[in-house]
């Protein structure tokens, strides 16, 4: 009797365990089904590399949005990457335990601030500052990069910290015993050993920056044109979807799903690379 119910439990759990995989497949299937035929119809190169996006006239080229996403994501990495990694090194190596006990929860608590709040801060505080002191319309590549850079900090920091913490203590002890200072040990030994984990943290941060929607809509300005400077307004792939989804119909809506397909594929590639990089480290 109990043997039988054990078997039932096993199969029920196995079925449940497929839910995550199933969700992923379902999402991939429906996004591709809605968007991919449109890309084929329109021609992939025309869809990706034409610069005119005028849904009313049936012009669907997402090149400005592609460039926009690249600019903004790159900007976010320039801001958030070094700061996040620096913070991780400082917290792991140079922070006294007592201070660590305050800073770590603060960073983890802050990881939960909703993205709309970051976006609002961009509009209410950052954009006016940029407008007044640097120039341009304020809502710009620069504003979006700064806000996104701050938003990816907790991700970059916490995964880098895990990577640094998982370097075997013997590496560090060996280096210190040879007379190296703590900083020399950090950048000559520990950082090298944790390289793949730190890389993964930056790639995951990048994924977060590319995928972020609401904050970017609020601060990037959303003009459909290729920006000439960091003070120009841009529209990202995510913003393009979210801004027009509310009223799009027919081919216009398919075009937005096709934008989603591009975004989905880029994210999947980035995440697979990050996961591979983390796994390589574990193998070592």
């Amino acid at each position: 009797m109990s043997q039988k119910s054990e078997t039932v439990v096993y199969y029920v759990l196995q079925f449940i365990a497929l839910s995550a995989m199933g969700s992923l497949l379902l999402i991939a299937l429906f996004i591709l089904k809605e968007g991919f035929p449109f890309i084929l119809e329109e021609g992939p190169s025309k869809f990706l590399f034409s610069s005119t996006w005028e849904p009313a006239k049936e012009h669907f080229g997402i090149f400005p949005m592609l460039v926009g996403s690249v600019w903004v994501t790159f900007g976010a990495l320039v801001v958030g990457g070094p700061l996040g990694v620096a913070g991780a090194i400082y917290l792991v190596e140079f922070t006294p335990k007592g201070l660590m006990r305050i800073i770590k929860p603060v960073i983890e608590l802050l990881a939960g601030i909703p993205s709309v709040v970051y976006g609002f801060m961009g509009v209410a505080v950052l954009a006016p500052l940029i407008r007044t002191y640097i120039g341009g319309p304020g809502l710009s590549v620069l504003a979006a990069s700064l806000i996104l850079g701050i938003m990816i900090l907790p991700t970059v920091m916490s995964i880098s910290m895990d990577a640094l913490n998982s370097v075997p203590p013997s590496y560090k002890e060996g280096s210190l015993a040879l007379g190296a200072t703590r900083w020399q040990t950090q950048y000559m030994v520990v950082l090298k050993a944790a390289k793949s984990g730190i890389l993964a943290s930056i790639i995951l941060g990048m994924g977060r920056a590319i995928g972020e929607t609401m904050a970017v809509i609020m601060v990037a300005g959303n003009a459909v044109k290729i920006p000439n400077s960091v003070l120009d307004s841009v529209r990202t792939l995510t913003a393009n979807i979210a801004l027009e989804m509310g009223y799009a119909t027919g081919r216009h809506r398919q075009a937005l799903f096709a934008t989603g397909v591009v975004l989905f594929l880029v994210i999947m590639m980035l995440n697979s690379f990050a996961m591979w990089s983390l796994k390589e480290r574990r193998k070592k």
Binding site: G207, G211, T213, T238, M245, G260, F264, M268
Partner: peptide, 9 residues
């Protein structure tokens, strides 16, 4: 890792 806008779509 999937962004929330994709979940929305």
């Amino acid at each position: 890792g999937i962004p929330s806008i994709i979940f929305g779509l």
